[in-house]
Design a protein around this nucleic acid. Structure first.
Lengths: 188, 188
DNA sequence: GTCGTGATTGCAGCTTGTGAAGTCACCGTA
DNA sequence: TACGGTGACTTCACAAGCTGCAATCACGAC
């Protein structure tokens, strides 16, 4: 008999999602989450740096995937296209088949400014990582910043539509469309 | 004799800046700030929603200025130009003559992720406010989002350069240049 | 068999942030 | 001049987030 049940992190994650759903982020305490997962508060903080972090487990995986795809992409692609291509692939592999879960998580974030702060930071970190890999490919720093920022702006618009009830198009399609639209807006 | 020395908010703000400079944001407690200002911790929280907020007093003024300028601008200007024009004016009136203070504040922010989170949120709020005023001018929502995002991306690049030691150009000039550069990057 | 490893725990303590009640200079008004 | 309201500040008490440290004990390596 193992000393502890396995999957402590998953249990904490699941318990947190349930409780955030049931009573909101602010009104649920870390002690409650831990209790529902059959663990203690101290253990929660062994696995997550803070209470918000329990909602962001996937983001480093997404980041790795995007970075990998940019690095693996065609060297000759213009920077913006290189980033968009990687985001499209990530949309297919990490988002498309989890629409329900992603949407639920999005609703939790939308209800809480603290969580949006964290999300913004994760996006900023992702953006910096993308810009860095573009620079490694020989892109000058300003171009890297702009290509990254533009791509993530399109991603944001596409994601917004994708999580709207009734929306049936794929995130990938919405993203491609958003990029076209962004190009015309910026070009005047 | 007045019951309290005047300018409690300014004293708290000044004490906070000093202490953050001396020992960093994390290592200074609200109790210390209040003590140096000759007040109590509770009074600090009467004036600032949380510990970080003491560094963001100006941002709502900036937001109002930018919004006002967009609303007052030429109706026929394309959305991106309308936003950029407002940011240029804000650069002149709110930033150019405070370079030293802005740079010091920027250094404090750069040293602390928590503070960057708050900064990102303030920017997101500003962006949403700008997009809203564009929509009121008849802009469709997606175009409003893209024009706003693009303008703030250029602003970010310009600000980055402006705070670099040795940089002598004005923020306004750097911003105009960044917009041109962004346009070429996004147009391919 | 023993020994180190690593996940988990208990506990003590600090800090942030809030709620509620109280103090008292100042100001307007009569 | 008296008097009552206002609002900035204080005091106290406490919930909740988060950390450091020492202890526990199944498990795997040797």
């Amino acid at each position: 008999m193992p000393r502890w049940k396995p999957d402590a992190v998953e249990r904490l994650h699941g318990a947190a999602l349930e409780l955030f759903d049931e009573q909101g982020f602010e009104r649920t305490t870390v002690a409650e989450i831990a209790q529902r997962a059959g663990l203690t508060q101290r253990t929660f903080f062994n696995h997550f740096a803070d209470k918000r972090e329990v909602l962001f487990g996937l983001s480093s995986e997404i980041q790795q995937e995007v970075i990998r795809e940019i690095a693996a992409g065609d060297e000759d692609l213009p920077p913006l296209d290189a980033v968009v291509r990687a985001l499209e692939i990530a949309a297919d592999t990490m988002f498309e088949d989890r629409r329900a879960a992603v949407t639920r998580r999005h609703a939790i974030l939308a209800a809480n400014p603290e969580l949006q702060e964290r999300e913004l930071r994760k996006n900023a970190v992702l953006a910096e990582a993308i810009a860095a890999v573009l620079r490694e490919r020989g892109c000058d720093p300003e171009t890297a910043l702009f290509a990254t920022g533009a791509a993530m702006l399109a991603q944001q618009a596409a994601f917004q539509k994708w999580t709207r009830p009734g929306e049936t198009r794929t995130l990938r399609d919405l993203l491609s469309e958003a990029v076209r639209s962004l190009r015309t807006t910026v070009s005047r």
